[in-house]
Each structure stands twice: as structure tokens, then as C-alpha cells.
Design a binder for these strands. Structure first.
Lengths: 191, 191
DNA sequence: TGACGGTGAGACGAATAGTGTCTTATCGTC
DNA sequence: GACGATAAGACACTATTCGTCTCACCGTCA
């Protein structure tokens, strides 16, 4: 990821926030990034689609990198899961860009969080988190658990519940110990 | 001003706020207003330019109507001027639409407040306010005073001063009694 | 020095979107 | 039933955007 590529992705993000996906043009982004159109096409051959895809991947990577750092040094499965969902929920709620997009283009944005985008999100979550969970569960269960958490976090973010607030540590802990951990029958200690 | 015309102007305003003047299309506005393109062209023949012009005129009218109501029943020139500049400054600062436009398209927006638009603003101010000032000054002086106030309010709005805050009554009063009223040598009582 | 990769500027044709005008059909009102 | 106002959308025209291309420029490194 060269500095120029980063500038382009940043420009893409802020142009989207200002005008919405439907109204941005490649020229807008190139101008915002202070880069020529030729350079942009050279970096992201395929135009808007590829560019937006790259942006989504990049944001997911950033997100999970932050998450990884945040759960560093956790030595208990419950604690790991609680921190994960609280962090993820908090970050989602604090993401201004996401909020703007949800407000101005709910269709596309929701699609990227559900039908279209969820598989990718789960893949990325698996990639970043399965390793953290595997000290406590075998690989197959670890991946299922990570997938389940990803689905739950997104669902509760998109449609908050009266009963559960995954942004709140106590609530998240209660939810996880009641509805998540038991079904994965974790051994009492890491193996 | 029919209800449909009002809907169209409202739609124009909110589309502008969302996408900026450069990105809105006639179709966007028609869709937002729930009106067909044909209707829109019938009401505002000339397209975008005419439409935006009509919007500006309409907003100015609303503004000065509010201002007129706000200074109703004032029986002293100083009081009249103070209320006027404070109200005008407050409204300008509170105008979200204006703030968005200033942020996203400073060029066009500034032009509408200065080189392009100021003459119109002064004309409207004259139309609405000269009558209010004429009990205290002859017509020629009344118009000059209104023009001066309009210029000052806009200037201090666009580029706030450390020394004067026309949104603050005390500061506005001090400014007016010191720098405005004396040069118009008003008679002590209405004539 | 000269080759080289990365870049900006901008030309180009094709595709797409937006404009402004029209016609037609459908309303509700008188 | 005539009327005015409107929605829907066809139409030709224009402007914008796209994706690709070439060319000149600028550092870097051999």
C-alpha cells in the first residue's frame, strides 16, 4: 500500500461522504487525491468498482487491525469475546463515514453489510480472529464462533435491541455467557 | 406561490444541501419534489439557473418577512437598527443550509453573498426595510442606511471580527451608536 | 550520461447521463 | 363533458464521464 494509493483511498472515502457513491466520479476522486486519472486507473484498473472494493477491503483491514491490537494479551475466551464485540460495536457506531452513507444511500450501504458484503466481512473476521480463538477451541469451532459473532455484531448494530446492547460491556458479557459460550462447550482451560 | 412551487423549492434546497449545486440534476429535484420534469419546466422555464434564482429570491423573502415581523412595533431608530442586525446575524449563523453550501461550494455560495448576490440582497433589504426606517430619516438617507447595514451584516458574518459581534445585542448597539448613527445625523424625534 | 519506473496532462472515441421540448393519457373540478 | 393541471415518458440534442492511449516530465540508480 503506497502512500499514493492511500491518498486515493482517503480521497475516495471523503468524496463518498460528501456526494454519495452515486454522484462521485473518477475525476472527483483523482482531483481530491491530487492525482491524475491515468495514475488512478493504473493503480485500480477497473474503475469505480475496483476502487470501492479496494476501499472496503482497506477499511476492513484497518478495522480488524485495530481490533487485534485491542484484544492483545487477553487470556480467557469470555474476555476475548466480550472485548471483541464491544470494540466492534463501538467502532461501528462511531464511524462517521458509515453513518453518512447509511443515511444517504441506505440501499448500497446495507447491501455491503449484508447480502453482498457479509461473506467478505466474515472471511476477514475469520482471518484476523480465528487465530485468537484457536487457543480455546479447535479450528472448526473457532471459525464458526467468529462467524456467529460477526453476524450478531452487525445485526445488533443495524437493528438495536431493547434487551441487548453489544456496545455495553456488561450487557455484552451477559449475552455472550448466556447465548454464545454454552453452545460451544469450551474446555475450562486453554489446550 | 402555489403549494407545488413551494414543494419544488424545498426539494431544490434539500437536494442542494445533500449533493451541492454542481451535482444536483433537474431529475433529482423533480423526484425529490414528487413532481414530473414537465411540471418543473412549466413552473420555472429555463431550468436550473431560473430554479436556483427563484430559490434565492424565495429565501430572501422569507428572511425579510421574518425580520419585518421581528422588528414590528419598534419606535426608536437605534432600537430598530440593533434588532435588525442582531436578528439578521443570528439567522445567518443558524442557517444550516447556508453552512453546508459554504462548506461544500464556497465559490458559488460566496459569490451569491457578494459580487453576484449582494446587489439583490441590498435591493430586497431596501424594499423591506426602508419603509421601517423612513419615519426617522428621509428616503435617500434611509436607503443608504439600509444598504450600509446589509453590507456590514454580511461582511461581519463572513469574516467575524475580534472587536465586534453583530449577533450580540450589546456589541451591536455599541457599534451602531458609535459608527453608524452619527453619520446619518438623525433628528432626535421622528418626523 | 542514459535507461527506467512512476507520474501528470490531456486527447480520443464510446458510453452514459442530463437537458429541454413535446405528445399523450389521466386526473379532479367546475 | 369541457377544462386546466399534471404525470409519464418519447425524442433529439448536449454535456459529462469513462476507459484507454500517448507523450513529456522528473527523479533514481546503474
Amino acid at each position: 500500500m503506497t502512500p499514493t494509493e492511500l491518498r486515493v483511498l482517503d480521497a475516495t472515502k471523503s468524496c463518498c461522504a460528501r456526494w454519495g457513491i452515486a454522484k462521485v466520479t473518477i475525476d472527483d476522486i483523482a482531483a481530491e487525491a491530487g492525482v491524475s486519472r491515468a495514475t488512478l486507473y493504473r493503480m485500480f484498473p477497473g474503475g469505480k468498482d475496483v476502487l470501492f472494493d479496494a476501499l472496503r477491503v482497506h477499511e476492513l483491514e484497518e478495522f480488524f487491525t485495530g481490533l487485534s491490537a485491542h484484544i492483545e494479551g487477553t487470556h480467557e475466551l469470555e474476555e476475548l469475546l466480550v472485548r471483541t464485540v464491544v470494540y466492534a460495536t463501538t467502532e461501528l457506531r462511531a464511524d462517521e463515514h458509515l453513518a453518512v452513507m447509511l443515511a444517504s444511500e441506505p440501499g448500497d450501504t446495507l447491501s455491503n453489510l449484508t447480502v453482498q458484503g457479509l461473506p467478505r466481512i466474515i472471511r476477514m473476521a475469520s482471518l484476523f480472529l480465528s487465530g485468537k480463538v484457536e487457543p480455546y477451541l479447535d479450528r472448526a469451532h473457532a471459525q464458526r464462533l467468529v462467524e456467529l459473532l460477526a453476524r450478531l455484531v452487525i445485526s445488533y448494530f443495524l437493528a438495536p435491541s431493547e434487551h441487548v446492547d453489544l456496545g455495553d460491556e456488561a450487557s455484552a458479557r451477559a449475552f455472550i455467557t448466556t447465548h454464545v459460550l454454552p453452545t460451544f462447550a469450551p474446555p475450562a482451560v486453554p489446550y
